[in-house]
Design a protein around this nucleic acid. Structure first.
Length: 311
DNA sequence: GCATGTCAAGTTGTG
DNA sequence: CACAACTTGACATGC
């Protein structure tokens, strides 16, 4: 088992920059490129630093934030790497990160945000989503990430019709995106049960988020959902990818959906212990939460744990 | 310098 | 019907 960090650090001095379309639009095009070039170069440099840091901490996976190249797909200020003065150097930095991750067995992933909705009935929303996914595919190729994980999107009154639209859009995705695309159960609409047969039929691995499952249950037990999701990865010969988080105010403290700073070890499914899988830790204390959970799982009496740092 | 409001995008559920 | 929650800063602005 390996535990993963999502995007950011709490205490370690690694951070990622961004900018807004609004501020870019105040500049002439060449100055936009200059500014974007500096930000992208800094982010590429910090990605390498992030990988060195997670490796040092014994963390085995890292999720790269979607605005890694800020506003790259924006209709007005979007750009290509080749447009940027430091484009070649930026590519070299990404290649270095790719080598480092491969050499040290750090699994990389992406989780495009809520604006990527392949099941939308609005063609413009779908077109924008494809554009955004292709940006992620380009990045994934460059850094060697094997997962681009999305949600099934909205329901629009009929889940099966929505999933059919998602199905119909898949042929329009490049191989770079399609071979990495995964679906995750969410906390309001699509449960593991909803996605099970769809994922199986299309050979799309299911990223099982146990917190979402607990917020949005479907009759399946955690053990059953784990088994189903695990099979969807084994079917394509890949290591399973799951998510864990804890409710900010506990399970009795109102809305359980907001994430807590740390993971309550009691929320970590016993049936995950000792399995071959990657578990992204979605917790606001970031790397502090991952390292604390690693330590706590090691001490858990109920099952043998093989954490990456100990193996 | 420091505090505060802003930031591309979708969808759903709440107040 | 407007708005917050998903996730979360970092940046731009204004004092």
């Amino acid at each position: 088992m390996r535990l993963g960090l999502c995007c950011l650090f709490k205490k370690e001095p690694v951070s990622f920059r961004t900018t807004t379309a609004k501020s870019l639009l105040a500049l002439p095009r060449d100055q936009q490129f200059q500014k974007l070039s500096e930000i992208c170069f800094d982010n590429a440099t910090n990605l390498y630093l992030a990988l060195e840091t997670v490796h040092r901490l014994g963390i085995g996976a890292f999720r790269i934030m979607s605005p890694f190249f800020p506003r790259m797909t924006h209709p007005a200020v979007g750009y290509r790497l080749e447009d940027l003065p430091e484009g070649k150097n930026i590519s070299q930095k990404l290649a270095a990160s790719r080598s480092f991750a491969r050499k040290n067995d750090i699994r990389l992933s992406f989780h495009p945000d809520q604006f990527v909705v392949l099941s939308s009935p609005h063609s413009q929303v779908v077109a924008n989503s494809i554009r955004e996914l292709e940006y992620h595919g380009m990045l994934a190729d460059a850094v060697g990430a094997d997962v681009i994980n999305i949600h099934a999107g909205g329901v629009y009154g009929d889940k099966s019709q929505a999933l059919q639209r998602l199905n119909d859009v898949l042929p329009y995705l490049s191989v770079a995106v399609r071979k990495r695309l995964t679906l995750e159960n969410d906390d309001v609409s699509y449960t593991p049960m909803d996605l099970l047969s769809f994922c199986e039929r299309l050979s799309i691995p299911l990223v099982y988020d146990v917190h979402h499952h607990r917020c949005n249950p479907d009759g399946l037990s955690v053990v059953q959902a784990t088994t189903i999701a695990e099979k969807s990865w084994q079917a394509v010969g890949r290591q399973p990818y799951f998510h864990i988080s804890s409710p900010r105010n506990g399970w009795q403290g109102g809305d359980p959906k907001p994430h807590a700073d740390y993971i309550d070890p009691a929320d970590f499914p016993a049936c995950w212990l000792g399995r071959e899988m990657t578990v992204d830790v979605e917790a606001k204390a970031k790397e502090l939460a991952v390292t604390r959970l690693m330590a706590e799982l090691k001490n858990r009496p109920d099952a043998p744990v093989l954490l990456k740092s100990a193996s």
